[in-house]
């Protein structure tokens, strides 16, 4: 595979995804408003009920807003991953997927470019969210904004590869509503995004175990630690492993025949 051709191809896919993203301003706004509602409204209501003890990676007592901020960053990535899945299904149904598939470059590479492009665009939204979160006193260390970048990128890749995998399984656009009910909501609520796992364990042992094996929990913890200048290597390996697993499933499960009908 020619290196310069591969680079131009990646640039082209990234640029198209970015142009589409910029043109869909409502998508950008809704991606921001959703986590901000959780941060400002939900957190205000539940702050008293959900007191947080000192837990890793924090060195002191923290506000509930501070606790849920990493989970909300991952929520943005989760919704974007699923949005890219929706856009793949849409492209397939509308026929524009065929333009991508006519490229002489290997299809696994084209899918990888799609995943990375989605991930990079998601990151801009996460940083926009983190800047606004400063207004409600979510103030991680300044260096944390830098150390969280690789963690966010890995999580974004995990969720875009999951989205791509789902797009290979969804036959019609109408079936996408099921993704909301069976993927997004369970992944988000059965994780440590909104409450520490020990709280969940106090309420229900079996729910705790579901949360503990949910890859999204590890993604959230990876981001939480990285934002506070710490490395959760367990979470990193699990997130990386799941990323490779879903990316392999997406590439092997991709059937161009669906794009030709």
């Amino acid at each position: 595979m020619n290196l310069s051709a591969s680079w131009y191809c990646f640039k082209g896919i990234l640029s198209r995804e970015f142009l589409r993203f910029v043109q869909q301003r409502s998508r950008f706004l809704s991606a921001l408003i959703r986590p901000l509602l959780w941060l400002i409204v939900f957190a205000a209501g539940f702050r008293a009920a959900l007191g947080i003890a000192i837990i890793e990676p924090y060195d002191t007592y923290i506000t509930y807003e501070t606790y849920i901020a990493p989970g909300l960053c991952c929520m943005i990535l989760l919704f974007n991953g699923m949005q890219s899945s929706l856009s793949m299904v849409y492209d397939r149904e509308m026929g524009s997927m065929r333009v991508l598939l006519m490229s002489p470059l290997p299809r696994p590479y084209l899918l990888l470019c799609k995943m990375v492009s989605t991930a990079l665009i998601s990151l801009t939204q996460v940083y926009a969210f983190l800047v606004i979160a400063l207004l409600v006193s979510v103030e991680p260390p300044l260096l944390g904004y830098l150390t969280v970048l690789p963690a966010l990128l890995l999580v974004a890749l995990l969720l875009s590869s999951l989205g791509l995998f789902l797009s290979t399984r969804i036959r019609q656009l109408e079936n996408f509503a099921g993704v909301m009910n069976f993927v997004i909501f369970p992944m988000f609520f059965l994780s440590s995004a909104l409450y520490p796992l020990w709280k969940m364990q106090e309420s229900s042992e079996w729910l705790y175990w579901i949360c503990a094996v949910n890859p999204f929990t590890h993604a959230v913890e990876l981001v939480r630690y990285a934002l506070y200048l710490k490395l959760n290597s367990n979470a990193m390996f699990i997130t990386a492993g799941c990323t490779l697993f879903f990316a392999a499933l997406a590439v092997t499960g991709f059937n161009p025949q669906k794009s030709g009908k």
Binding site: A5, Y8, C9, S15, R16, L19, Q23, G95, S96
Partner: peptide
């Protein structure tokens, strides 16, 4: 193709640049 495969929200040039990039053209 029989069915149009242009991206309606991109300009003519943007559509063509996208195609060229997929063929590894700068």
């Amino acid at each position: 193709f029989q069915q149009s495969t242009l991206d309606l929200d991109l300009t003519v040039t943007q559509n063509l640049l996208y195609h060229a990039s997929l063929h590894g053209i700068s």
